[in-house]
């Protein structure tokens, strides 16, 4: 057994054997999701609280489905429905919820680092469901699982991450995870959306998408938030999709077995065209399916503690 942690906060702190262990475990949970009765008693009597300081549909639902399929009792506290709007600090909210004796907190927060700060102050387990621009470990794990469903190994793969790297926790967690597993990671986007010194994390940087595409075994397309125009990062969405939008024309130069991935939600016609998103190379919905299995594995590992 290679996993002995109170919390699952980031990919950066995991070693290769831990990642492999989680992925193996996730594969065994995938089968449960295909049954007619999709429920096992593994976490019966355990309490999982989803503490979400940022809007989320996919991730919160995925964690909730995962917890319920393991028979845990789940509760959701979100920024709009809670004392958060009354000015209670995150730490006070955590302490109050902790007093109700939960076993696992699943925390999403718009402030980078918040799950680390909160995990240090509670004896319950914490799973980071995404913090600011920092980490989104369950997403990187489900991405690796999805790649491995289609490729023999991560070692030696060329993974191209396209778009708003600067603001992306998905990009950061994937860079750490994929590099650890032996893949090459290239990040591509306009210079305004590439954070400084990203090469220190092990990623190669390119500003020319058309040069990168032929080499790529996997293309991860990131969501482009429309607000980025107002922040002087982009002149227009039109110019962005001209140079960095993934479409059928561009993919003519891609490897035949290239995988197209996207963490969602997608902006059709901006960073990705519908023909690609819905096309034969796309594994976007497989990512979502795998997300439930990966989160079952994480809840199982921490909830069993």
């Amino acid at each position: 057994m290679h996993f002995n942690r109170k919390d699952l906060l980031g990919i950066q702190e995991l070693d290769v054997s831990e990642i492999e262990f989680i992925l193996d475990l996730s594969r065994s949970f995938k089968e449960i999701n295909e049954r007619t009765i999709k429920k096992v008693p593994t976490l019966r009597g355990k309490t999982v609280i989803h503490l979400f300081y940022e809007p989320s549909t996919r991730t919160r639902t995925s964690f909730d489905v995962a917890a319920k399929r393991l028979s845990a009792d789940t509760f959701s506290v979100t920024a709009s429905t809670s004392s958060i709007v009354k000015g209670e600090t995150a730490l006070d909210t955590l302490k109050n919820l902790e007093a109700m004796k939960p076993d696992v907190f699943v925390i999403r927060h718009s402030a980078s680092g918040a799950p680390w700060q909160l995990a240090a102050r509670t004896s319950a387990s914490v799973i980071n469901a995404g913090d600011g621009m920092h980490e989104h470990p369950s997403q990187a794990l489900l991405d690796m699982l999805t790649i491995l469903d289609n490729k023999k190994s991560l070692r030696g793969l060329n993974v191209l991450i396209v778009g708003d790297i600067f603001h992306s926790r998905v990009a950061r967690s994937n860079i750490w995870g994929l590099k650890k597993m032996g893949a090459t990671v290239v990040v591509c986007g306009p210079a305004t959306l590439i954070p400084p010194n990203i090469d220190a994390m092990g990623a190669e940087v390119s500003h020319c998408l058309d040069q990168c595409i032929p080499e790529a075994d996997v293309i991860m397309v990131l969501r482009l938030q429309k607000e980025r125009q107002q922040q002087m990062l982009l002149p227009s969405l039109r110019e962005y999709s001209t140079w960095y939008g993934i479409n059928g024309e561009r993919l003519k130069n891609a490897k035949k077995d290239v995988l197209i991935m996207h963490p969602g939600p997608i902006n059709r016609g901006v960073e990705i065209s519908s023909e690609v998103a819905d096309g034969p190379c796309s594994v976007i919905l497989d990512q979502v399916t795998n997300g439930v299995a990966v989160r079952m594995a994480l809840l199982y590992l921490l909830g069993q503690r």
């Binding site: 920092h134 010194n197 994390m201």
Partner: peptide, 13 residues
């Protein structure tokens, strides 16, 4: 401070 560490921590620099 903006640089290697701010990028790693996802904190604006």
């Amino acid at each position: 401070n903006e640089g290697r560490v701010s990028t790693r921590l996802g904190l604006r620099g």
